[in-house]
């Protein structure tokens, strides 16, 4: 059996007077697209920083492809490309040169890095800006540069810390497309985000982290199914008492010609409910479905919104 791309077990970390992580357990399989969701200060960035060597852990296991991130740091770090949330500033070198430097830190010579750098500059729309300094780039361009930098050594695992924070909608969608492409090409992606929609659209699996612990994990679909609050609203006339019996397998309320059903999967249950109402000669005036989202799940689990 092959080792998971990332394995974290019982990870603890405290800063001087703050407890940041209180036993994080996390396993990300090779090729998986994983989203780490949590409010500010939940422990997302600390977890990532421990994994990449920026923060020292107090205790716990952190492994990349079965190797310890401290003892075998050369191996583990060379497998990871990270796009940090904070945008760096560099006054001295053009971005193309910075990408070559970055490849060099990972042991890749300029000759070998050249095609990769060219490809990334082209693919991320930075070709015309290759001689620009970072300070001359817009926020969106700096985000693209961050992504290019994280990919320049062709890592197997890509860690993206809030990759679309502060970028416009168009660029966000462009970046999403690119992330999907990377995932399709076999990359393992760990994404932290404030945008629930981002995690719902991109991730195969999400982990909800709060107060330094992962409190729930699963696919966005399974989580919303299990913990979401989906529903069906029906405006109708012709209510009869027999319907209480007929609809007894559902959780519903009826008031002022309005029926409200609390269901897990509105699309699946809607047809059956309509069929039952029609069978009892009810006249349906309107039907609407309320779809559950990860936001509901998040609220349910943490008692607060992600932002």
């Amino acid at each position: 059996m092959t080792s998971p791309a990332i394995h974290i077990s019982d990870l603890h970390k405290s800063y001087e007077d703050t407890i940041a992580l209180t036993g994080v357990n996390l396993t990300i399989e090779d090729g998986e697209f994983y989203g780490l969701l949590g409010p500010n200060g939940a422990g997302k960035t600390t977890t990532i920083h421990i994994l990449t060597g920026l923060v020292l852990k107090n205790s716990g296991v952190t492994e990349v492809y079965g190797k310890d991130t401290v003892k075998d740091f050369r191996f583990t770090r060379s497998q990871i490309g990270i796009a940090h949330q904070e945008l760096p500033i560099d006054w001295f070198f053009p971005i193309e040169k910075l990408l070559y430097f970055h490849a060099g830190y990972y042991g890749i010579s300029k000759r070998i890095a050249k095609p990769r750098v060219e490809e990334l500059l082209e693919r991320l729309g930075l070709k015309d800006k290759r001689t620009s300094r970072l300070r001359q780039l817009s926020g969106g361009m700096k985000r693209r540069y961050q992504l290019a930098k994280s990919l320049v050594h062709d890592p197997k695992i890509i860690i993206l810390d809030e990759p679309t924070a502060g970028v416009d909608v168009e660029l966000r969608h462009e970046l999403w497309d690119y992330l999907r492409e990377l995932h399709k090409n076999g990359k393992t992606i760990l994404l932290t985000t404030h945008y629930i929609e981002e995690a719902e659209l991109l991730c195969e699996k999400v982990g909800i982290i709060d107060k330094g612990q992962i409190i729930k994990e699963g696919s966005p679909r399974d989580l919303t199914k299990e913990l979401g609050k989906a529903g069906i609203n029906i405006h109708m006339t012709g209510w009869c008492d027999e319907l209480n019996e007929a609809l007894s397998s559902f959780s519903f309320t009826y008031d002022d010609n309005r029926l409200h059903f609390t269901v897990k999967e509105p699309e699946a249950d809607m047809a059956r409910i309509i069929q039952l109402l029609s069978h009892h000669n009810c006249h349906i005036l309107s039907v609407s479905a309320e779809k559950s989202s990860l936001e509901d799940v998040f609220l349910h689990l943490t008692g607060k919104g992600i932002n």
């Binding site: 990449t52 060597g53 920026l54 740091f73 050369r74 191996f75 770090r77 060379s78 990871i80 990270i82 940090h84 904070e86 945008l87 760096p88 500033i89 560099d90 970055h102 830190y105 990972y106 042991g107 930098k149």
Partner: peptide
């Protein structure tokens, strides 16, 4: 101060 150090510290450099 300019957030460049993480690039060095996350690279496979001792």
């Amino acid at each position: 101060l300019l957030q460049q150090l993480p690039d060095i510290l996350t690279a496979p450099l001792s």
